[in-house]
Each structure stands twice: as structure tokens, then as C-alpha cells.
């Protein structure tokens, strides 16, 4: 039974920020690939002060989504951008619909 000590290398909450390395590590994506995604406007840092842009925790899921869309459906980067945008619009519409449903439910 080996008993080695492990230091935590990063930790996060909903509000913490990740730098490029930490983000790459968390999402399992190479940092250079992330930089390319940023160029394509697929991902935006929340604070872009050089030399170390910072990302929100939600960027991890977004990155994974980009990777999955490329891998599972063979979508290229501009295509991924379109899908993510439509997805956001869809989510907004779902929210609106849900609100309208609740409102008409409470009236009836």
C-alpha cells in the first residue's frame, strides 16, 4: 500500500477564475487549441489582460461541448460557432416559454 501525499493543484468554485493552463488542464484540451478557439470567437476570456487571460468556470463545459461537436458530429469551427449560438438562442426561447407557461398557468 503506497502512501504518497498529494497536493491539490487547483480548486474552484462557481466564482473562481481559471488561467489558460488551468482551463486546458480542466477540460483536457491543449492550450494552443484553446487559443485557436478564442481566435474563432468560440470562447471568450472574462478578463483579457495580458499576459494571462482569465476564464469563467463555465468555459470548461463550453470547451468540452466544442470538442464533442467536432469529434461526434465532425463539425468544423465556424459550424461549431453557429451551433453554439443557436443553442444559446434555443435555451433563451425555452426559458421564455417556461415563463409564459407559468404565467398563463397562474392566471387560469
Amino acid at each position: 500500500m503506497d502512501d504518497a501525499h498529494y497536493e491539490v493543484i487547483f480548486w474552484q468554485t462557481e466564482h473562481s477564475r481559471l488561467n489558460l493552463r488551468e482551463l486546458a488542464d480542466a477540460a483536457g484540451v491543449h492550450p494552443e487549441l484553446i487559443e485557436r478557439f478564442i481566435e474563432y470567437g468560440l470562447l471568450e476570456p472574462v478578463a483579457s489582460e495580458a499576459p494571462d487571460p482569465l476564464f469563467a468556470i463555465s468555459a470548461i463545459e463550453r470547451l468540452r461541448r466544442i470538442v464533442r461537436l467536432r469529434r461526434d458530429l465532425g463539425v468544423n469551427l465556424p459550424g461549431v460557432a453557429v451551433i453554439l449560438e443557436m443553442r444559446e438562442r434555443m435555451e433563451q426561447l425555452q426559458k421564455d416559454l417556461e415563463r409564459l407557461r407559468r404565467r398563463s398557468g397562474s392566471e387560469g
Binding site: M1, D2, D3, A4, H5, Y6, E7, V8, W11
Partner: peptide, 10 residues
């Protein structure tokens, strides 16, 4: 195999 190690919680 059961692996055992210590995690330091900061």
C-alpha cells in the same frame, strides 16, 4: 488493488 494516499485539503 486498493490504493491509498493522502489528500491535503488546503
Amino acid at each position: 488493488r486498493v490504493e491509498s494516499f493522502t489528500v491535503n485539503i488546503p
